[in-house]
């Protein structure tokens, strides 16, 4: 029955995961619009369905039935490949995240954290290729910004990850969640959580770090030449990335699926994870509604002059703690 374990179960898990993520994406847009509206003394979507709950469905139908326009002046293969490249990493990063006790989303690979770093590295390509292939000045500027920004923020992000890794002593996310950590380790982690969150914001191109697509300077940045479903794919990538990174942060900093009685009742694991993810998503949206966007050189300066040294110091601290306290 080996093939069952090898193919069928993972396939089923993948399908379930896709379903959950895509539905999650759809309702994340609803959640964001509702929340933003509340922040901005508006109502938000309230026409399609009760509380506007069918709005995501309406949006999906609209995006699907839009005319597929490929401008003449684009580099066609790359132009078509880019949206796919953007969305695939956002989905596959989920494979290693544990959703319940002894239950990773797809597979418990021993190099879970490395997998996250590697896939996050690919994410930039979608944006960069989209901007490059569009053959448009705005897209090009957006893509250049995005590549610089992603490289700059991946460094401190990676170093923070390494720091966590040093503390945990394992690459596997499943083990990371299940191991018991002393109280000082939690504190030490939470100390840098805000900075980690900033890196994540930059990594997912979320406001206030949405410089690659700043609508008020670059029209729509790298997505200027995209429309219909291709645009929707970028949109999906961004939102699924938000979910994914929230799950990663929940896993690394807040114990993932853990919670009262989650050990006894396995089904509670996903529920706790869901709650933590939603809370983190709220943070994303809150930031979007209230924090101004820095200029692009200020963004870079912040990364290189502040985040990078701090992350290195944190790494050193972790190493010292690990050696002397563990």
């Amino acid at each position: 029955m080996d093939w069952l374990n090898l193919l069928v179960y993972p396939a089923v898990r993948v399908l379930v995961l896709f379903f959950v993520l895509l539905t999650g994406f759809a309702y994340l847009t609803w959640y964001e619009r509702k929340l933003l509206a509340r922040f901005q003394v508006r109502y938000g979507p309230n026409r399609a369905g009760r509380f506007g709950l069918l709005q995501p469905l309406a949006d999906a139908i609209k995006a699907l039935f839009k005319e597929e326009i490929v401008p003449d002046h684009v580099d066609r293969p790359v132009y078509l490949l880019a949206p796919a490249l953007a969305i695939v990493p956002a989905l596959i990063i989920w494979a290693v995240i544990p959703v319940a006790k002894d239950f990773p989303a797809v597979a418990d690979v021993p190099i879970g954290i490395l997998w996250i770093l590697a896939v996050a590295g690919i994410e930039g390509y979608g944006v960069i290729l989209a901007g490059w292939s569009s053959n448009n000045n705005y897209s090009l500027l957006g893509a250049l910004r995005s590549s610089a920004q992603m490289i700059s923020y991946e460094l401190p992000l990676g170093i923070f990850l390494v720091s966590i890794l040093v503390l945990a002593g394992t690459f596997s996310l499943v083990e990371l969640v299940e191991m018991s950590r002393p109280w000082w380790e939690w504190l030490w982690l939470w100390l840098v959580f805000p900075l980690f969150f900033i890196c994540i914001l930059a990594e997912t191109n979320r406001s206030p770090f949405d410089l690659p697509e700043t609508e008020n300077e670059l029209v729509a940045g790298f997505q200027t030449e995209y429309g219909g479903m291709k645009f929707a794919l970028f949109f999906m990538a961004e939102y699924i990335n938000m979910i994914t990174t929230s799950a990663i942060m929940a896993t690394l900093f807040f114990g993932g699926w853990k919670g009262p009685f989650a050990d006894q009742y396995v089904w509670l694991g996903p529920v706790y994870l869901f709650i933590k993810v939603v809370a983190l998503l709220f943070l994303f949206i809150w930031v979007r509604a209230s924090v101004s966007r820095p200029r692009w050189d200020q963004l870079m300066r912040f990364s290189w002059q502040f985040l990078l040294p701090v992350s290195l110091m944190h790494l050193m601290g972790s190493a010292v703690f690990t050696v002397f306290l563990k």
Binding site: P208, T214, A289, S292
Partner: peptide, 10 residues
Amino acid sequence: VSGTGMSLLM
């Protein structure tokens, strides 16, 4: 300037 001023706009 800030892109996120939608709140203030409202």
